[in-house]
């Protein structure tokens, strides 16, 4: 864990024409872990990623990045020392398009203090990205693959992939996940994967940050969220009796039968009582929990 960085945001707000994209966000990303940044489209994931990487100045509050060879906490905006150690890969690429791939690779090699040229060569090979082709001539999948190559080979102590890998087909995405895990095992660093495809990446994550409308819904170790919800199905009155003291995420009725999804740990005694009262109790998967936590409230 030589170089991994810790990220904190304090009361962070970013607004677009007065409309909040991030609303007083306080969070901490622990060093050396793979974090998932989850949220629906428009929830503020990309704005957060851009602000962490110093692409954008906070309107209020601040971003602090510390640890590794940075030492004391520093703000990333307009700070070359920090931004050389923070790599954000976005779908758009953020690079000139009219030049050959090898120029983008050379630029990254010059800017990134932890650049690994051997790894870059191996990745370009495995993702079959042609070095001499102009970037604008690449297919969407190859452009995404180039982003992934630059992101991994930079070996930046804070590396953020903002849905950039979603343009790749399934075999390429699987190759990305394999290469990411292999290189992370070799050089642990702080990694953020921003996505709305929860089920595909959830097993690779250690912690998740869930955003909705620019606000923090929850931050938690991902394994703690698994099995954290429960659905209770049975006669409406009985279901209501047992779910009265819980946070209700969703309710559905079919005739006299009701299905209620709740958040929270049901203790074994209560579960036994509910079963004895004739209710069916089932766990709620992470994807469903995510949908409920970020869904439109009815």
């Amino acid at each position: 864990m030589t170089a991994a960085l810790t990220v904190r945001t304090e009361d962070l707000s970013v607004r677009f024409a007065g409309v909040p994209a991030l609303d007083r966000l306080d969070l901490r990303l622990a060093p050396g872990k793979i974090h998932g940044l989850l949220g629906r489209n428009g929830s503020g994931k990309s704005t957060l990623a851009a602000t962490l990487a110093g692409f954008r100045r906070p309107d209020e509050g601040r971003v602090l990045i510390e640890g590794g060879d940075l030492g004391a906490a520093q703000e990333p905006y307009e700070n070359a020392v920090v931004t050389s150690r923070v790599c954000l890969i976005r779908e758009s690429g953020d690079r000139p398009d009219a030049v050959p791939v090898k120029h983008a690779v050379g630029l990254a090699a010059a800017l990134r203090p932890y650049w690994d040229a051997d790894l870059a060569g191996e990745l370009l090979d495995r993702f079959e990205v042609p070095l001499n082709k102009k970037i604008q001539k690449l297919s969407r999948g190859k452009k995404s693959a180039l982003g992934v190559v630059l992101g991994l080979a930079s070996r930046a102590p804070l590396t953020i992939f903002d849905e950039s890998y979603l343009g790749m087909d399934v075999p390429s995405r699987n190759l990305f996940y394999d290469m990411l895990l292999a290189d992370y095992a070799e050089m642990p660093r702080t990694i953020v994967l921003s996505t709305h495809l929860v089920s595909e990446v959830s097993a690779m994550l250690e912690e998740v940050v869930i955003l909705d409308q620019g606000r923090l819904v929850t931050q938690s170790p991902v394994d703690a969220l698994r099995g954290r919800g429960a659905s209770l199905v049975g006669p409406a009155a009985t279901v209501d009796e047992f779910t009265a003291s819980f946070t209700v995420l969703a309710e559905e009725r079919l005739g006299g039968t009701k299905s209620t999804t709740v958040l929270g740990d049901l203790d074994p005694a209560l579960l036994a009582q509910a079963t004895a009262a004739g209710l069916e109790i089932g766990p709620v998967g992470l994807q469903d929990l995510f949908v409920h936590l970020t869904g439109v409230k009815s």
């Binding site: 793979i34 394999d178 895990l181 095992a185 250690e206």
Partner: peptide, 17 residues
């Protein structure tokens, strides 16, 4: 744990746990 994590494509810390 790293081999296990790579093989099943899961987080190494989860495998270690």
């Amino acid at each position: 744990t790293n081999q296990y994590a790579a093989f099943y494509r899961i987080n190494p810390a989860t495998a270690a746990k």
